[in-house]
């Protein structure tokens, strides 16, 4: 479990990105952080692996304060996926996926075997192993990004708008496979998005942030849709019309994929 306790991030110019945040990200579940731009969701995510240091408060993973650990070592134990994949252009796909295992000093052969297994796992043809990132489509690159984050089998994964830069059809298939993957792997995942549809679809729980880094509501998608905590959340969900559409889609998803429903509740 990742636990935020009274975490605040204030920049030198005085802007507050995250304001006195207390939040639990339960083990083995997907917690989606959602909100408009400037709401501090990405800052929150990046404080977990110390890409950003909080001004006050504590963040613990399974009871251990992240600030007690060496940042580089901490990060090698946490998977990280970002919007534009951030693949290393000078390394082949298989070597990209094996990046963290190499850093951890794994045997080269073992690292590559693991990488190849992961390629299959995320739905990539292993024939692509020797290719370079520029030879792949955006969706394929994103799959490599997910595989790379999983390579050292970290218990925790941080995902920052991982599916935002691809077209809607590819996005849907990436999301569906991500749900399938998570039902097998049961990682502790913090997932940032600005897309409420994605949040409701993927999250076991959804944390809605307001501008200024204030947590407005943290609940299951069903509770969120049934009882928005305040006007801000209601408006963010698109008002009555938006809520109707989201509830309708949610019912559709349930009918489509009964497995997901079982996994969620």
């Amino acid at each position: 479990m990742i636990q935020f306790d009274g975490v605040t991030k204030r920049y030198v110019d005085g802007t507050v990105a995250v304001d006195d945040l207390t939040l639990q990200i339960p083990t083995g579940q997907i917690t989606v952080l959602v909100g408009p731009s400037g709401c501090g969701k990405t800052t929150t995510l990046r404080m977990i692996n110390r890409l950003i240091e909080p001004t006050s408060g504590t963040i613990t993973i399974d009871g251990e304060d992240v600030r007690a650990q060496d940042p580089a070592r901490l990060r090698r134990g946490i998977g990280y996926v970002i919007q534009h994949a951030g693949l290393f252009p000078h390394r082949t796909i298989v070597d990209n996926i094996a990046t963290v295992p190499y850093l951890l000093g794994w045997d080269k052969k073992k690292a590559r075997t693991t990488a190849l297994e992961l390629m299959e796992r995320v739905g990539l043809d292993t024939k692509m192993a020797r290719r370079y990132p520029y030879q792949l489509s955006g969706g394929q690159q994103q799959r490599v990004g997910v595989a790379r984050a999983l390579a050292a089998d970290p218990p925790v994964m941080l995902m920052d708008e991982p599916f935002s830069a691809v077209d809607p059809i590819v996005r849907k298939s990436l999301q569906d496979e991500f749900i399938r993957l998570q039902s097998e792997l049961r990682k502790t995942i913090a997932f940032v998005t600005h897309d409420i549809d994605e949040a409701v679809k993927l999250g076991h729980t959804v944390a809605v942030f307001k501008v200024g880094g204030v947590l407005a509501q943290h609940s299951t998608p069903d509770e969120l849709l049934a009882a928005p905590a305040d006007d801000f959340v209601r408006e963010f969900l698109g008002g009555e019309k938006g809520l109707k559409r989201l509830r309708f889609n949610r019912d559709l998803d349930r009918q489509d994929e009964p497995g997901v429903e079982a996994a969620e509740r």
Binding site: N49, L51, P71, A72, R73, L74, R75, R76, G77, I78, Y80, I82, Q83, H84, A85, G86, L87, F88, P89, T99, V100, L103, G145, R148, L158
Partner: peptide
């Protein structure tokens, strides 16, 4: 070097 690449490297634990 593209910014996402640099960020990804840092986040994966490169010093």
């Amino acid at each position: 070097v593209p910014d996402p690449v640099r960020q990804a490297a840092t986040a994966m634990g490169f010093g």
